[in-house]
Design a binder for these strands. Structure first.
Lengths: 255, 255
DNA sequence: CGTTTGTTTGAGCCTTCTCAAAGGCTGTGG
DNA sequence: CCACAGCCTTTGAGAAGGCTCAAACAAACG
């Protein structure tokens, strides 16, 4: 494993997690404060299971750009994203790159069942995750059908997202792809009530956005300035986007 | 449901499937002769479960071009493909189309859990399937962890395939995409020993191939003639392809 | 303040698309 | 069996969108 900037936060003292109580199995303190607890994979676990998983899990942070799992490598750890964005990409022998997915909190990173899936996993932004051994994942999957079902659902959701992007990559113009990218980001930055966010911090540099959209960095830049000139968005310091006209953006995105 | 050409084959008589025997649960005769039985989803079921599923399942045939499930529609039936090819595609409001997956025997068609996935499901070729009510799928998934796991694995496999195609759509040239398409088809037409098939019957017309590859029918045609001129493949009557130089094909495919 | 890295903008080129026409199969009816 | 219609495929010529290469600009960092 080539992890450049890995920093383990001070974890819950073991005795606190293990201390017997009136309730035989309490939710670990680490998990109680966890942002991802209910929405993520862990939401399927009861307190006893959570305790068991929590005992082996640690919070970690990675700096933007860090490689979490090299292509073809089999990860020994799985993670829940607490904050930040994870980039999954594929490489061709000659160096061409395609970003095949972005993952946001509270997504789960890591693959059930044996096969490696030959993607490169990197921290797109600074990242905080809750990490645990891969072995635990398999244990939980066999022990808890609800957990397995939730993993299954996540896989199906990712499949839908991948197919949505196939449409963009195969049939949409550069302008449409850039607009679609902004729409999707705004969904993820959205408030919990489902309203889309008007303010987006782009998690990727132009080159990475281009690798996601199947374009070049120059084309992405040009399309963004076009959107700016049309008054659809505002761009500040190249990474912060304000959506001024959401309806127009959706229209340009062909969605 | 708009099913144009649906033909229900005579099924196993109910009493034969239900007849008690020395073995409390025998494998239904329909399933015993089934090509997809061991490789497909059903392989995870024990004879009792298979009997239960078999009681509600029927073999059906569809003519090429038939719509199995319209986009956005929730299917009441699921199917195992026995022979033929199923095409999953997405449509844009203005009519642009992207084929997001091809499925071959013994793949499973139909979606576990509620959500519709907004794809159009069509028979690309003449099709034989083993079909059963969606309700049974949910029953089997909760009853049999092995069945649920197999469904989960199929979802992950489809996710890998989708991402592989994202690479092709986003980063490969027209020539590379067409070659990649042939390589993938040859894998599916391959003998069970894993050797790739040198003879391929294209399951799609040029326009559909184009919709899969994110190209136009004209470009697909031109690239195929280019491969023919280079001596890499032979094309007979536009639908039958012989791979003359597998190594060169792989090379052109950038794989 | 200079260096480095990322972004924007421009000019010309190349791949692929669009539009158009001709060529081949397939099926139908005489 | 042949003629013809209809559809799919092939091929060509010109247009256009996005790419490449290059340079100017901006922001981050030591």
């Amino acid at each position: 494993m080539t992890i450049a900037a890995r920093h383990v936060e001070p974890t819950e003292p073991a005795d606190a997690a293990l201390r017997p109580d009136i309730h035989t199995a309490r939710v670990p303190r680490l998990c109680r404060a966890c942002e991802a607890r209910h929405r993520g994979i862990c939401g399927a676990l009861d307190p006893a299971e959570l305790l068991r998983l929590g005992r082996t899990s640690t919070r970690q942070t990675y700096a933007a750009g860090t490689t979490l799992i090299a292509a073809g490598e089999r990860a020994e750890h799985c993670s829940n994203i607490l904050s930040g964005v994870v980039k999954l990409s594929k490489l061709l022998a000659d160096g061409r790159q395609q970003v095949v997915a972005l993952q946001f909190a509270p997504d789960f990173v890591g693959r059930p069942f044996a096969g490696d899936s030959d993607v490169l996993v990197e921290a797109a932004t600074d990242l905080r995750v809750c990490s645990f051994p891969r072995r635990m994942l398999e244990t939980m999957m066999t022990a808890s059908p609800a957990f397995e079902a939730r993993m299954h659902r996540q896989a199906l959701r990712q499949l839908d997202e991948a197919r949505e992007w196939m449409m963009a990559l195969g049939r949409k113009s550069a302008a449409e792809r850039v607009a679609t990218f902004l729409v999707i980001l705004s969904r993820h930055a959205a408030a919990p009530d489902g309203r889309r966010a008007g303010e987006i911090d782009l998690p990727l540099c132009r080159a990475d956005i281009a690798d996601f959209l199947g374009l070049t960095a120059e084309t992405v830049s040009r399309q963004l300035t076009a959107l700016r000139r049309q008054g659809v968005v505002d761009v500040v310091r190249s990474r912060h986007v304000t959506i001024r006209d959401p309806a127009a953006l959706l229209c340009v995105a062909a969605m």
